[in-house]
Design a protein around this nucleic acid. Structure first.
Length: 424
RNA sequence: GGCGGGUUGCCCGAGUGGUCAAAGGGAGCAGACUGUAAAUCUGUCGGCUUAGCCUACGAAGGUUCGAACCCUUCACCCGCCA
């Protein structure tokens, strides 16, 4: 039953580029291999896209290898060059704080124990923070050819555009050194990451070979995009889909994946869940035959929410989603069910005595960023209260509109819903 | 250090004294069609107490009846030269 990890990654669509796969396969077969992936603290939380390499570590661990999760406390202070323009440096304290938060998130997805496959947590600040410039330039810098560095795609694009600072240019050296350090400390011989990390990873592979004469591997996953090639993780409301429940509620997380397109849902099932090939194939068949049931989307949303937020949360958001989006009359929901659903959905507050208009309510519930936007929604026919369209900006709730005497369920468009708790 | 070019709304990018809340594209949002899908078409897309007002074209001043557009200074970026 146990398929080779590389074959598994392959059908899951998780292999974009790699160094010699046959050599890697041999190494994987000859005992537990130590591998790592790094995550830079560029925000206070990981986002959904980060789950690809993170879950790859977990997949490798399940296949009998040892993962190292690395928080980029040092690299996060420098910034990996991106295609467009120079990043602005974040304050040191902020990066430190973010690195801590991200480390906490990383730890949840791999298992720690004393066995040879027990995970290790690292922070590259530990070995980078105290290195002197001279030491670094002599020991690491000397092994990098400017000629090669200039040939990198990102660098070329930046040179054609707004240019790049020396700081960002140096990023490659830092990450390469990370790989070397982990190779030395833990015998780490495989680094995985998104395909945008290819150059950085290979930099490390070469550094290990040059300095220690060691052989190490590189493996990247494709950048996750939706069927239109858009970068993954932009939620319908704009902005990233974050792991932190304070930043993206489990309800919103669930809804985001529930709304995925057919092709996307199947791709995400392979990448973000541990469902077997057979199970995914079955869901693909179902989607083909009875697309309206959205079996793939439901399973994806459920599995992924489960993985990130836990079973208990998942139960709640599934129930809330069914209550709010179900075909049943909202008025017929019993109080407990409605309360539970409202506890999961985004909510706002209002007072009946203030005679809030539909526009005020939409803003209060967070369904519209401004009154202007709320008015637009109403005029476009996209505003609903308790599943009934409201087409006048002047509409204001009457006491009998309140569900169980205190709730209004608002909806903007078809898939954004929120509650407003109304006080007398 | 010198000379030249640049900094426009979420992003890209046009605009070089009034007709500019600023062309065009992308993204986003809503509607129709659907399956809480995709594609397509349509509309929309700074804020507000919305026939008006406020804020906005790197920052601060200035010229002018009037400035994104002209002038000055500053900041940052790019290129060439030293």
């Amino acid at each position: 039953m146990s398929e080779h990890i590389l074959d598994e990654l392959s059908w899951r669509g998780l292999i974009a580029q790699s160094t010699d796969l046959d050599a890697l396969r041999k190494d994987l077969d000859s005992g537990p291999l130590t591998l790592y992936a790094g995550f830079d603290p560029t925000a206070p939380s990981l986002h959904a896209g980060n789950m690809v390499p993170l879950l790859m570590l977990r997949r490798f661990q399940k296949a009998g290898h040892r993962p190292i999760v690395l928080a980029g406390g040092a690299t996060g202070m420098i910034g990996d060059p991106r295609d467009t323009d120079e990043r602005s440096l974040n304050p040191l304290e902020l990066v430190g704080e973010w690195a801590e938060r991200i480390r906490g998130q990383l730890e949840r997805f791999v298992d720690f124990d004393d066995s040879p496959t027990g995970a290790i947590v690292a922070n590259n600040l530990d070995w980078t923070g105290e290195v002197s410039v001279l030491e670094f330039l002599r020991d690491v810098g000397k092994h990098f050819s400017i000629n090669v560095m200039l040939a990198r795609e990102t660098v070329k694009r930046r040179l054609d555009g707004d240019g790049m600072s020396y700081t960002e240019f140096s990023y490659l050296l830092l990450q390469s050194n990370d790989y070397l350090q982990l190779y030395r400390q833990h015998g780490c011989r495989l680094q995985v990451g998104g395909s945008d990390q290819w150059g950085n990873i290979v930099g490390g592979v070469e550094l290990i070979r040059r300095v220690d004469g060691g052989s190490a591997h590189a493996l990247t996953a494709p950048l996750v995009t939706d069927s239109e090639g858009r970068k993954f993780g932009k939620s319908t409301g704009g902005g990233n889909v974050w792991l932190d429940p304070e930043m993206t509620s489990p309800f919103s997380w669930y809804q985001y994946f529930l709304n995925a397109g057919d092709q996307d849902a199947l791709q995400y099932l392979r990448m973000f869940t541990f469902l077997s090939r057979e199970e995914v194939d079955e869901l693909a068949r179902e989607t083909e035959e009875r697309p309206h049931l959205r079996a793939a989307q439901r399973r994806l949303a459920q599995e992924f929410t489960d993985l990130v937020h836990g079973e208990e949360q998942t139960r709640r958001v599934v129930a809330a989603s069914e209550a709010l989006f179900g075909r049943g009359e909202l008025r017929e929901l019993d109080e407990a069910t409605l309360d539970a659903a409202m506890a999961q959905a985004p909510t706002g507050e209002a007072r009946l005595a203030d005679k809030p208009s539909i526009v005020d309510l939409l803003v209060s519930a967070g369904l519209a960023p401004s009154k202007g936007a709320a008015r637009r929604t109403v005029n476009e026919g996209g505003a609903y209260v308790n599943n009934t369209k409201v087409s006048s900006e002047e509409w204001t709730p009457a006491p009998e509109d309140l569900l169980h005497g205190r709730w209004l369920v608002l909806r903007r468009g078809k898939r954004n819903t929120a509650g407003v708790r109304v006080a007398p």
